[in-house]
Design a protein around this nucleic acid. Structure first.
Lengths: 212, 212
DNA sequence: GTCTATATATTGATAGAC
DNA sequence: GTCTATCAATATATAGAC
């Protein structure tokens, strides 16, 4: 693995995340990677081929930057799900909403693209969902018997992407926090739900709904 | 109001929605509006100024294309919320995932932009949320007493944006349908919830969770 | 108001020296 | 492998005739 190639991928990874695919020129990538001239084409035939490699790199970063620190922040599997959301919150606030979800951004931007890009996006979405689903699997006994955990994990992904999108659009963290609080209320009701009327069913109260 | 100007705005409205802001050239807009040459600059000083007008136009289209037909499809206020989501589903399927939410797309794409664009995006988000909130207000008696309906309306927006984003990224409608089904389950649990243990609390069962 | 013609900058990509 | 030099296309925006 050439060290030059790594610098190019690292630069593309960051700039595509920050500015998007179209808004990032190859000249900017070359400058950021300290590679002069068109020697970028020695490693990648087109800009889209570079994006393809970047999408594979994002699957590695997902663990390093999101999942590992989130899982280290909590033992409880359901709390880990919300720790993951907390990682995105931290990224939004720390960068003043400059950085959102790189996969979500590209899913919006790459309307017309080759099949390789599409497969990369789907692969990253799959990876993300599976990590969350594993948490839900570990909490099976606290969820209602009939819950489709794959579907619920997909719902967490949808809420994360939507919350990041709206928060970045509005440039304020409140809509993100509100969405997470609402998802928390849903999980509270799921974990409190019981087939019949049992003592601790009283947790389904109005309080959890209004928690800020 | 010049008729030429209207044609330009209509062309920009469609092309920005379909291909995005950056991917739409002014030449394409001129061609689509049947306006030759740079006479576009008689009405708009910059491309971003044209986008600004387009954002105002989207607030009108929201009623025409989404809210009016959705509200006509159901009398029940909560059903109307899900009819709104159904409108986005129809748009995704009918266009083979080419058209998503124009506001959501621009919220992702317009990272660095002038304050006018930001205000336009926020205004459109506000308008959308208020329409949903009005539905929730009409269903106050069926929701738990303490529910923050503004926050719940924001959650519906987040789920819609996230569901459209993931469905378009994956190019399949299933993640959208799954997210809507999960939101439906949440609403079922909300409307079934009662302060204490009452007869019809049995609706909080495992069945609703697995409904496809 | 609408047009033609064009300025100016930047884009992704290529050719070829070393 | 990495560089310099450059191509051809396209972008936004402007000037000025009619």
């Amino acid at each position: 693995m050439s060290e030059t190639r790594q610098r190019i991928v690292a630069a593309a990874t960051e700039l595509f995340h920050r500015h998007g695919f179209q808004a990032t020129s190859l000249a900017a990538i070359q400058q950021h990677a300290d590679v002069r001239g068109g020697s970028l084409y020695y490693f990648f035939r087109t800009k889209e081929e570079l994006l393809q490699v970047t999408l594979e790199r994002y699957s590695e970063i997902l663990d390093e930057a999101i999942m590992d620190p989130a899982f280290a922040g909590a033992e409880d599997p359901i709390e880990r799900v919300f720790e993951v959301l907390g990682q995105y919150r931290s990224m939004l606030v720390a960068t003043d909403f400059a950085l959102g979800c790189p996969i979500g951004n590209l899913a919006v931007e790459m309307v017309e693209c080759g099949p390789e890009i599409r497969e990369g996006l789907i692969g990253d979405f799959d990876l993300w969902s599976r990590k969350i689903e594993a948490c839900l699997d570990a909490a099976t006994d606290r969820l209602p018997p009939g819950v489709d955990r794959t579907r619920l994990a997909g719902f967490v992904l949808v809420v994360m992407e939507g919350a990041v999108l709206v928060a970045r659009g509005r440039r304020e963290i409140k809509p993100f926090d509100d969405a997470v609080a609402q998802l928390r209320d849903y999980f509270d009701r799921l974990t409190a739900a019981t087939p019949s009327c049992e003592p601790d069913a009283g947790r389904v109260g109005p309080d959890t709904t209004n928690a800020s």
